[in-house]
Design a protein around this nucleic acid. Sequence first.
DNA 1: ACATTTGATATGTAGTACATAAATACTAAA
DNA 2: TTTAGTATTTATGTACTACATATCAAATGT
Lengths: 234, 234
Amino acid sequence: MAINDLSKDLAPISSNTMADIVEIKLREYLKKKSFRPGDALPKELELAEALGISRNVLREALSRLRMLGMIETKKKRGMILARPDILGSFERVLDPLIIDNNTLQDIFELRLVLEMGLADLLYIRKTDKDVEELENIAKKEAKLDESFRIKSEIAFHGKLYDMTGNDTLKRFQIMLMPIFDYVLTQEKKPIRGKVNHMDLVQILKTGTKEDFKIGMQAHLQPHFDRINKIKTNK
Amino acid sequence: MAINDLSKDLAPISSNTMADIVEIKLREYLKKKSFRPGDALPKELELAEALGISRNVLREALSRLRMLGMIETKKKRGMILARPDILGSFERVLDPLIIDNNTLQDIFELRLVLEMGLADLLYIRKTDKDVEELENIAKKEAKLDESFRIKSEIAFHGKLYDMTGNDTLKRFQIMLMPIFDYVLTQEKKPIRGKVNHMDLVQILKTGTKEDFKIGMQAHLQPHFDRINKIKTNK
DNA sequence: ACATTTGATATGTAGTACATAAATACTAAA
DNA sequence: TTTAGTATTTATGTACTACATATCAAATGT
């Protein structure tokens, strides 16, 4: 545990390059001046001069903010503050091959937590049409051979997130999926809970929120069993 | 809803600037060559030449990857691929003042979902020591006046995430907190559930996982009520 | 009054030059 | 031969200049 007490406790050391510093300074500047999306920013030369740096360094810092979607620029209009896509930056970094194993496991668990917590929102927002569509997905499943099983798995759980009416949550789930899959493929054999998709649909149709929670728990039980097994390894 | 079918369906249009394109190309390059953390990258001049661009543009793209923690550079050693901090980039963008209201609401709900889903992980990992510490937090609470109530609220729920032993989850919660608070302060009066922190501690001590889920639901009920109210507005 | 041209301007890209830090090679002393 | 210290080399970091390009705005012509 204790990821990095060391690096936390004892130093940002030297805030590396100028671009790093300028990036921070720009952030502070935008905050202090309480710019709002759409507001125009000073032009590059003015900023560079004010900061006492070359336009080059400034542009490296601006490039970062631009990537995050915090600013937008047009040829003559100059720069304006924009609304960043909060998940966009996150998405850029989510590559299972780069992330270390501990974090992969963390994210796997994170998705389980989400899945377990969906029920309340789901029961607030679900519609009959939603449930019907979900049922169709589950029905088709029976006819599919194993190779298409994964696709259906994704479709089903994706639809669940869909039904919460929470776009951010939905996107978040989509982004986490590759990692979820990756961790699973590290496992030997596919695991299946005692409650299947069709069962869950039935609960959604006639059961209570509490029923659904219990059902989902049973559905994901194999994953929790696995976590229990490696619990000590952490 | 359908956030933006339009922008999704019909175009990234022109991937704006060179830096944008180079950023993508570099990403593809790193992936295709399946570089691993620690591997050395070609030097700037070589990359720039290979891409047929100025070193300037290249550095703008590199600056982005460096910000995300995907690469690290040292004066003579050159560049190496690094492990990005997956939440670091996310953190940079999480400013309640910039995020639009719909997304704020989404994130608020996201945190509720997390909170509701914690139980399973919690019951796998919690220790007596953890519960004891949690109890201390809840006990102190009684003596505090209203102004310190928020701090304790944070400490209590933070400790819950702590107890899951999932560092990523914990950090995620910390990052989401300002937004959670922000949305709450938009409300008139502070809301309080029928189950308080001390009750939750008692459940953790002697109750089952299911008891805890029910308890947490009751604790958060006011928030869900609020969601139910604005359900139609979406 | 309207359409077209022209100019001004802010960002985008390229290229050169030099500073700086760090690894390597080299030199001189023990 | 070893070791300490110095010089050299090299890749990144920073600065500056020049020009391309797109767009807004004013000037011009019909």
